[in-house]
Amino acid sequence: MGPDLTWYLAVAAFLFAIGALGVMLRRSPLIVLLSLEIMLNGANLALITFSRHHAELDGQIFALAVMAVAASEVVVGLGLIVAVHRRKLDLDVDKLSTLRG
């Protein structure tokens, strides 16, 4: 038997915190999206760890659904970034503070 499941949860908590840090600190919307992926993956790791803990597959199903939602979120987010870029606006989340183009 390898490491305790607690260690996996510690990695998940660290991943979530690092991702949150990236979302709050960085100004480039691309890196904000990448950090969001890190947060989602931290949550996924926790889901799969608890799925192993309870010996039930429902957590893995949930993790797969999260992956599908994350993929859709990336499509829409990248589409928004490309639309912002095409309007010759700065790619800076601090400057994109109004909803008007």
Partner: peptide, 27 residues
């Protein structure tokens, strides 16, 4: 790799295919 250690083989494969493959290529 961590998912494989937690015996979530299908999720690990889907992770590599969907995330590291498709999503990151789009990025």
């Amino acid at each position: 790799v961590l998912y494989l250690l937690l015996s979530a083989e299908f999720v690990a494969a889907a992770q590599v295919l969907v995330y590291a493959g498709a999503v990151m290529v789009m990025f």
